[in-house]
């Protein structure tokens, strides 16, 4: 565990808290892509079955449980509690175009051809693109509530911080590197660059998040 990794995980945790806070206080899931949230449930469920048969650390298990539970809870809030506030007509990204190719990539690139490993790889690839329905929705509406942009920024920063974490681990742990996670992680961070640009130049200067027409 190094400082980048810890801050990354805390940023991930913060993003979940911000999202829950947004839904609860505005009593609305407006501006949030149900499809992206559903993909995160798929990501965590595919990646963390090792909870059942392998103990890594208390920290590791607790975080995994929090991610699975909170992502399911968010889906529940969107699907049942605040269903009328979600507009499916703007959440139109075709997720099958993400799930299919990610599964094929998981079959090709993995660390062992068995269920656990293929699903692990699949989850890594899927996580890297899971934000696309959300960004697509943002693109369509051209604007976002400030709190929603804080959520997205925390989520993007989480992945961005994993990159210095890998560099740090590479140099301090004798060349340790995970090519699948690193490749997917760089792609995932790259997807946020446009968003980060607007977030840091506008939202953090006190302006509303608006995309140029």
């Amino acid at each position: 565990m190094n400082v980048f990794r810890l801050l990354g995980d805390l940023s991930h945790l913060a993003s979940i808290i911000i999202l829950l806070h947004k839904i609860q206080t505005t009593r609305s899931c407006r501006g949030i892509s149900f499809k992206t949230q559903a993909l995160y449930v798929a990501v965590f469920v595919a990646r963390y079955p090792d909870l059942l048969f392998r103990f890594i650390s208390f920290y590791n298990s607790i975080m995994k449980l929090i991610f699975i539970a909170s992502s399911c809870y968010i889906l529940y809030l969107m699907r049942y509690r605040f269903r009328p506030t979600h507009d499916p007509s703007i959440d139109t990204f075709r997720v099958e175009y993400l799930i299919g190719p990610c599964f094929v990539l998981g079959l090709i690139f993995n660390y062992g051809f068995n269920m656990t490993e293929v699903f692990w790889s699949f989850s890594i690839f899927l996580e890297s693109v899971a934000i696309l329905p959300q960004l697509f929705m943002l693109q369509r509406t051209g604007e976002a509530e400030t709190i929603t942009t804080h959520y997205l920024a925390a989520l993007g920063i989480y992945r961005a911080l994993y990159i210095p974490n890998w560099i740090y681990r590479y140099f301090t742990e004798d060349g340790v590197v995970d090519p699948i996670a690193v490749t997917a992680g760089i792609v995932q961070t790259g997807l946020y660059l446009d968003f980060f640009y607007v977030y840091f130049t506008k939202v953090l200067q006190g302006e509303k998040f608006e995309l140029p027409a």
Binding site: R5, H12, I56, N60, K64, F67, W166, R169, V177, D178
Partner: peptide
């Protein structure tokens, strides 16, 4: 607990 492999990052 075993040392965390890069694969076991969250």
């Amino acid at each position: 607990p075993v040392k965390e492999h890069p694969k076991d990052e969250l």
